[in-house]
């Protein structure tokens, strides 16, 4: 029987010449020069920062903790700004709603309607 076996009729169609592979590799690398340069430039500006990234990270975390511990800012006159004022939008109606006199609770309204008796 004729062979369809290893190596008897077949050999690689890929070139054996080492220089061919060197030339092809050089062609691919040379033509990639603009992409490599682009990567190099991108690297250039953030690389110095990346070297300090642990220190920058620790500093940022410490600053965040300090802000939280220090609490809300105080008014120059010594009066503490209320929490409601801090979270309310900076416009008069919203301020009035949030920091105005509290609304009557429902039990008080029921007592008024029934003449104050249970």
């Amino acid at each position: 029987m004729n062979n369809v076996n290893e190596g008897s009729q077949f050999e690689s169609r890929l070139p054996d010449d080492g220089r061919y592979w060197d030339d092809l590799a050089a062609r691919i690398v040379d033509s990639a020069e603009p992409i490599l340069r682009q990567h190099g430039q991108r690297q250039a500006w953030w690389h110095p920062l990346a070297k300090w990234s642990p220190a920058i990270g620790i500093g940022a975390a410490a600053a965040a903790i300090l802000i939280l511990v220090a609490g809300p800012p105080k008014v120059a006159g010594g009066n503490q700004v209320s929490f409601e004022q801090l979270i309310s939008p900076q416009e008069p109606v919203a301020q009035a709603v949030v920091s105005g006199a509290p609304a009557s609770d429902i039990s008080a309204m029921l007592l008024v309607e029934s003449g104050g008796e249970r």
Partner: peptide, 10 residues
Amino acid sequence: ARRGDGEAFG
């Protein structure tokens, strides 16, 4: 190579 090193890409 992603830092632009041609030798590594090669």
